[in-house]
């Protein structure tokens, strides 16, 4: 019975994984990213509208990514260039995203899904689920094995190091937040393509849950995706109807788990040193 939960866990963990990797990119660069939720929502929205118009999932994916990226640029423009309060700006962007959905409310028609790949034994999943492991690896290599990653981490950890190299902190922060918009947008696209339907509450706090996964995973890609699997598992528990548990309790289980995880009851974590600091 637990085995039957595995496919659902993978499916639920995929969008969280994308958003969490995005969260890592921006938080490692020193920008606290509460706006993951809004970026996912915008990504999902862009996917829906363009996929409905063109009947092509790939164009949908591209537009979804662009939407997430656009919102990320808004966030980075405000927080990096104008040095606004990062958390408040993030919440504002979430409100903005929700508002634009309500304003431009797309029709609730069926949306084309991304192609699924059928493999023996493993089963069939969306193509974005298969690219996930590759993405984790890429993220890990970029962060820890390349000069880019080094600079990105320096932007969030020791601004002095960047200064001594006479590198612009702002540029690397823009880079990090931009990446997070792209990844979170992909997460949003996956959510729509998975159920072939767009609703206003489709993200349902997954952006925040992903952020909790980032903290739980200690800002490391591999650990964070493992945390996402845990949250995905908690999210798929609603498949179990045998136990006489109220529906609402099962639905809020990921949220409760998030709070437990954030309380550090599962282990202490260490955030990037310059996270949330807005000086250059």
């Amino acid at each position: 019975m637990i085995l039957s939960l595995i496919p659902s866990t993978l499916r639920k963990a995929t969008p969280l994984g994308y958003a969490a990797l995005g969260g890592i990119c921006s938080e490692r660069a020193g920008v606290a990213n509460i706006a993951l939720e809004g970026m996912m929502l915008m990504g999902a929205f862009g996917y829906t509208v363009s996929a409905q118009a063109t009947e092509s999932a790939w164009i949908g994916l591209g537009v979804g990514i662009a939407c997430g990226f656009g919102l990320a640029m808004l966030l980075s423009g405000a927080t990096i260039t104008f040095q606004s309060e990062q958390i408040v700006t993030g919440v504002a962007i979430n409100i903005l995203a929700l508002g634009s959905i309500e304003y431009l409310l797309p029709t609730s028609e069926r949306v084309v899904g991304l192609p699924e790949l059928k493999l023996p034994i493993i089963g069939h999943y969306s193509i974005l689920t298969y690219t996930m492991p590759m993405l984790i690896l890429m993220c890990h290599i970029m962060l820890y094995k390349t000069a880019w990653g080094l600079r990105l981490r320096a932007a969030g950890n020791s601004t002095e190091a960047l200064k001594t190299l006479s590198l612009s902190r702002k540029r690397w922060q823009y880079f990090g937040v931009g990446l997070s918009g792209i990844l979170a947008g992909m997460g949003g696209c996956f959510l729509v393509s998975d159920v072939n339907l767009f609703t206003k509450g489709i993200i349902g706090g997954r952006g925040y849950v992903a952020l909790a996964a980032v903290i739980f995973g200690n800002w490391r890609p591999i650990n964070c995706v493992l945390a996402c699997l845990l949250f995905g598992f908690a999210d798929s528990l609603d498949l179990i109807h045998q136990w006489n548990i109220p529906d609402q309790l099962i639905k809020s289980f990921p949220y409760i788990l998030t709070m437990i995880v954030l309380a550090g009851l599962v282990g202490k974590t260490r955030p990037p040193a310059a996270l949330g600091k807005s000086e250059n």
Partner: peptide, 14 residues
């Protein structure tokens, strides 16, 4: 649609 005001609110905070 009401959403216009919501967008405006987000913009206002930013």
């Amino acid at each position: 649609p009401r959403g216009l005001f919501l967008v405006g609110q987000g913009l206002l905070i930013i």
